[in-house]
Amino acid sequence: MPSNVLPQPDGPDTRRIKRSRVLSFALLAVAAVVFSLRPEVFGDPQAQPWHALLHVWRIVLGVALMVAALGVQVAVGVRWRRGLRRSAEQEPSTRGTPPGNQAAGDR
């Protein structure tokens, strides 16, 4: 029965994972700043016709930054798992073959 425990990442993978976490944190921090912007910061809301658009665009931009942070994490995870699968395919292992696929003399 195969194990569900994943091995620890090696050197380049560890650096890539750390960098992706820093990038995701930075994207989330920028999203928090964008969400905290208030249209009043840019002047009198009654005198500016684009006041309502600023409300909509800061929400859209904040959500886009949050989705980008999630996308970075997913992309790095998929790349790491693909590398694990590739390395598992390269090393031939007969340990996991079921007995029905072996020759009759080997059983």
Rank of each mutant, 00 (worst) to 15 (best):
M1C: 10
M1D: 13
P2S: 03
P2G: 09
S3R: 03
N4F: 14
N4C: 06
L6E: 04
P7H: 01
P7K: 04
Q8G: 11
Q8M: 06
P9D: 03
P9C: 00
D10I: 01
D10R: 05
G11S: 06
P12V: 03
D13L: 11
D13F: 10
T14R: 10
R15D: 14
R16G: 12
R16E: 07
R19E: 15
R19L: 15
R21F: 12
S24G: 14
S24I: 00
F25R: 02
A26M: 13
L27C: 14
L28Y: 09
L28V: 14
L28S: 14
A29E: 08
V30N: 03
A31D: 06
A31K: 00
A32P: 06
V33L: 12
V33I: 15
F35E: 01
S36M: 14
S36V: 04
L37Y: 03
L37S: 01
L37E: 02
R38K: 15
P39N: 03
E40R: 09
F42A: 03
D44N: 12
D44Q: 00
D44L: 02
P45Y: 08
Q46M: 15
A47K: 06
A47V: 10
A47H: 07
Q48Y: 08
Q48L: 13
P49C: 07
P49Q: 08
P49F: 15
W50L: 05
H51W: 09
H51L: 07
L53V: 05
L53Y: 12
L54I: 07
L54S: 00
H55P: 04
W57Y: 12
W57F: 13
W57C: 15
R58E: 02
R58S: 08
I59P: 05
V60N: 01
V60S: 03
V60Q: 01
L61V: 05
G62L: 03
G62S: 02
V63T: 11
V63W: 01
V63H: 11
A64Y: 00
A64L: 01
A64R: 01
L65V: 04
L65C: 06
L65T: 03
M66H: 11
M66G: 14
V67W: 06
A69S: 01
A75V: 08
A75W: 04
V76L: 04
V78F: 04
V78H: 12
V78D: 09
R79M: 04
W80S: 00
W80V: 00
R81N: 02
R82A: 14
R82W: 14
G83W: 11
G83I: 06
G83S: 08
R85K: 09
R85E: 12
R85D: 15
S87N: 12
A88T: 08
E89C: 12
E89H: 15
Q90A: 14
P92D: 03
P92A: 09
P92R: 05
P92K: 02
S93K: 02
T94C: 10
T94P: 09
T97H: 10
T97E: 14
P98A: 14
G100N: 12
Q102C: 15
Q102S: 13
A104W: 15
A104C: 09
A104I: 09
A104T: 05
G105V: 11
G105F: 15
G105S: 15
D106P: 08
R107P: 06
R107Y: 15
